[in-house]
């Protein structure tokens, strides 16, 4: 799949925003951790709402017809994209009531804003789930069509949220070992889940060029796609990054997204200044940005089978198994060489 930059930014930034809000609601409303000052509560809330809003605005960047974006709320009944849009917007009034309660009453808010805060946190989880299901429900992309997809979206949102939560707490001198501990647990859990996903997609199977063309009893090779230049389909689905690029980015995902932030929090626990939590936050956001790029780059749409891919995991360049159609080029009477005008002996007449 062609990785749309606006979608990568949207899912990473608003995902972290929802994660931050979930952490804020959990720490504040369930009374976990140290008491937060009025200013700290507002800072967490403003940061999460700001990131969510920025992400949602960026998400319209990949629409070809932005003036109809409002219509995306219309098919809640069947479309996960519609559900995501509805839940994302439904989040705002509840988060707003909670935020207003904090603004007016401080940390000791009344039961109504507290209830709104809990509902908003639940809606944040549901929105992350819906984002994952947008991809998870597609039967055409075997790498996405798994329960691990929404699970990853929720866990990565929460993990990046925890790093931001710990980083913002340092500004108010309120970061504790609990902040660092929670962040480490969330990061490790997200890393394990992502590792399972990568293991899973390395061995998915599904439709092949045989079931796509209906010829199940013979080798099928693409002779010609029928077009001389790229099409919408090849632009959108023909994305084929090199294997070593994928491996390098995957290394970056684990190093920047998980290992470096965990090391930062570990060093905070063993006495380093708490302020370096910002390094963890920035590093995890960059790492998860790489993860999101990889999520698209590694997804192989089944329409590629019509463009020559042999299986739903192959790159387009990989040849078919079975005997080659043309004899090897060592034979001087080889049809292929004749076709290329490369006559034996080099006589060009």
């Amino acid at each position: 799949m062609h990785p749309a930059f606006s979608v990568i930014l949207f899912t990473v930034i608003s995902g972290a925003g929802y994660g931050l809000f979930i952490l804020l609601a959990a720490f504040h409303l369930a009374g976990i951790g140290p008491a937060m000052s009025h200013g700290e509560l507002l800072a967490h809330g403003a940061a999460s709402l700001g990131m969510i809003t920025l992400g949602l605005m960026l998400s319209t960047g990949h629409l070809a017809n932005k003036k109809n974006a409002w219509r995306s709320f219309m098919r809640f009944k069947t479309s996960w994209l519609s559900r995501e849009a509805v839940f994302a917007v439904l989040f705002y009034p509840f988060a707003g009531i909670y935020g207003l309660g904090v603004l007016l009453q401080g940390a000791a808010i009344g039961p109504l804003p507290a209830l709104a805060g809990v509902i908003a946190a639940v809606l944040a989880v549901i929105t992350l789930f819906s984002t994952g299901m947008i991809y998870g429900c597609l039967k055409t992309i075997r790498q996405w069509n798994t329960a691990l997809t929404p699970a990853n979206y929720i866990m990565l949102g929460i993990a990046t949220g925890t790093t931001l939560f710990a980083a913002i707490a340092t500004v108010f001198g309120n970061a504790t070992t609990l902040h660092a501990g929670v962040a480490m647990v969330a990061l490790v859990a997200a890393a394990v889940l992502k590792g399972i996903y990568y293991f899973w997609i390395s061995r998915v199977n599904g439709p092949t060029i045989n079931t796509a063309t209906t010829f199940n009893r013979a080798t099928v090779r693409l002779l010609d796609t029928g077009h001389t230049a790229g099409t919408f389909l090849t632009d959108e689905f023909g994305y084929d990054p090199r294997k070593d690029t994928i491996d390098n980015v995957k290394m970056g995902v684990f190093l920047l997204g998980f290992v470096a932030p965990v090391l930062v929090f570990a060093s905070i626990l063993s006495g380093a200044p708490a302020g370096i939590a910002w390094l963890a936050a920035v590093s995890s956001l960059i790492g998860i940005g790489m993860e999101r790029w990889l999520f698209f780059a590694e997804a192989k749409h089944v329409v590629r089978l019509y463009h020559g891919a042999q299986t739903c995991t192959n790159s387009l360049a990989e040849p078919a198994r079975g005997r080659a159609a043309v004899a090897p080029a060592t034979d001087p009477t080889d049809a292929r060489r004749w076709e290329l005008g490369d006559t034996p002996g080099g006589s060009g007449s």
Binding site: F215, A218, T219, R221, L222, L223, D224, G226, R323
Partner: peptide
């Protein structure tokens, strides 16, 4: 509508 061309079976 797009037409694509395939080789089925081995020579």
């Amino acid at each position: 509508n797009r037409v694509r061309h395939y080789e089925v079976g081995d020579y």
